[in-house]
């Protein structure tokens, strides 16, 4: 029973972890020169949702996280929802064709996602008529941002693996829990 509660609590705790991460990102990385190396915590969370959650749960979490981003920015309404959802769906589609088994392949996926996110971001801005001057700025921050997310991803994804294992959200842990429940059900 306790294990099942842990598993149910996983998305709630995950949400609060992301909220805390955004608070750190917006205050710690507001200082010069750290502002040039600002990682995107929400992007890392969306990548994790895309690769380690089922389609519906991951999609809902992505919308919730994008909403958290929207209340910490002056960006036009819906911009982050579009861009994070694009990354989420793009990664889910990519995961059908590529196997992403380990942390190192996750980091490569992070780097690609970061670049995809920036391009989708500026494209949507451009479509809204607000991003005409942003291409140069985006290109300047494109690679430092992607590298920072890659570096941070090493720790974040390891911590998330551990977190999912503890809360029985990990595939193996979930299988073990289901086996245990089945044995209990059979009276063994």
């Amino acid at each position: 029973m306790f294990k099942l509660i842990l598993r149910i609590l996983n998305p709630v705790v995950f949400f609060f972890m992301v909220v805390a991460g955004v608070a750190v990102q917006t205050s710690l990385f507001a200082l010069y020169p750290l502002n040039y190396l600002q990682p995107d915590i929400i992007l890392l969370a969306v990548i994790w949702c895309a690769l380690r959650r089922n389609f519906i749960e991951g999609g809902i979490l992505t919308l919730v996280f994008a909403n958290v981003a929207e209340i910490h920015t002056s960006a036009p309404q819906g911009l982050f929802l579009c861009c994070y959802m694009a990354v989420y769906l793009g990664l889910r589609a990519a995961s059908r064709f590529f196997i992403i088994p380990s942390i190192s392949s996750l980091i490569i996926a992070t780097l690609c996602s970061s670049i995809l996110w920036k391009f989708s971001y500026v494209t949507v801005l451009h479509l809204l008529g607000a991003g005409a001057q942003q291409w140069r700025h985006m290109l300047m921050f494109l690679f430092p941002g992607a590298v920072m997310e890659g570096i941070l991803g090493v720790w974040v994804f390891k911590a998330m693996e551990r977190f999912d294992w503890i809360t029985f959200k990990n595939e193996k842990a979930r299988q073990m829990l289901e086996d245990e429940l089945q044995l209990d059900g059979e009276g063994l």
Partner: peptide, 10 residues
């Protein structure tokens, strides 16, 4: 605090 994104400057 400053903006969550580098493109906007709230």
């Amino acid at each position: 605090a400053k903006d969550v994104s580098t493109e906007f400057r709230a």
